[in-house]
């Protein structure tokens, strides 16, 4: 356990990592989707994961959050805790929250209820307490309600608290996903292509929003993003995946000038830095 920090390559920053992944490999049958990727998310930082379509970014995300099991030898350490092999809900309640590339809200629940669902692991009321309506459980419910409204205000959709999630506009649904993730009181928030479908102005506003999330909620943010203008402006560090392998890592400037990165992108898409591919990637 104690060698966690030292074992991670290129972890020059002395600050302890909020999340670190070591030697993550994910294979489907014979297909290697993610091959031996290690990386670190320092505490309260904003880190991006980029790569061409089918590079394995979402698979890597899923391996971090416990939806997929990394192959033997891989380790995910969250907040100093080895969470490899734990169930997704356990990992989530330990402080790793996420949003989904193709928004997965609870459509027939109100925005406020959506947020409260994510507080599940922080609340205690059980069957008997709920049925009997014990005073402390009523108080707990009331507090959860207030926290939910506060979170919805924070992401800017406080007015829609009692709308069904499916009735929200696309942008509001994305915001609700973030509010829901924050309700887990996470250490790290993973945002899976949060600007997909946004226009440039909305994307610019989103950069501000990510900074606010980090500063006011004291979390680390890990982004998967296709919009390079967002990535370059928001990220403190960038990791580049291509065909399941980590090909580069560093600051925006280092990555931008890295020949392997340029080649990976040139090989797969138009040559400029502004690669905005909105839709799904593989897996």
């Amino acid at each position: 356990m104690t060698e966690t920090q030292t074992a991670v390559p290129e972890a020059e920053a002395p600050a302890p990592a909020a999340l670190s992944a070591e030697n993550i490999t994910v294979t489907f049958g014979g297909l290697v989707a993610v091959n031996d990727v290690s990386f670190t998310v320092p505490d309260q930082s904003i880190v991006s994961l980029i790569g061409p379509n089918g590079a394995g970014k979402t698979t890597f995300f899923n391996a971090l959050t416990g939806l997929y099991q990394p192959d033997r030898g891989g380790r995910v350490v969250l907040n100093g805790l080895d969470v490899t092999g734990m169930s997704p809900n356990r990992i989530a309640s330990l402080g790793l929250a996420r949003t989904f590339q193709n928004i997965r809200l609870f459509n027939l629940m109100t925005a406020e209820e959506n947020v409260k669902v994510a507080m599940h692991s922080h609340l205690k009321s059980g069957v008997f307490g709920t049925v009997l309506g014990l005073p402390w459980q009523r108080r707990e419910e009331r507090e959860a309600h207030e926290v939910a409204l506060e979170l919805l205000d924070f992401v800017g959709i406080g007015k829609t608290a009692y709308e069904y999630a499916r009735n929200l506009s696309y942008g509001d649904q994305r915001r609700l996903e973030v509010a829901r993730a924050l309700a887990l009181k996470p250490r790290v928030v993973l945002l899976d292509e949060p600007t997909a479908g946004m226009n440039p102005r909305e994307s610019a506003a989103f950069v501000e929003f990510v900074h606010r999330v980090r500063d006011e909620r004291k979390v680390s943010v890990l982004l998967i993003e296709h919009d390079m203008s967002v990535v370059m402006r928001v990220s403190e560090r960038i990791t580049v995946l291509d065909r399941g392998e980590k090909i580069a890592e560093g600051t925006a400037e280092e990555v931008r000038t890295n020949p392997r990165v340029v080649e990976a992108y040139l090989g797969s898409s138009a040559g400029d830095n502004h690669i905005t591919i909105a839709d799904e990637e593989g897996e």
Partner: peptide, 9 residues
């Protein structure tokens, strides 16, 4: 799946 990702056991 989303429920489990939100910490619901």
């Amino acid at each position: 799946l989303a429920a489990s990702a939100m910490g619901v056991p």
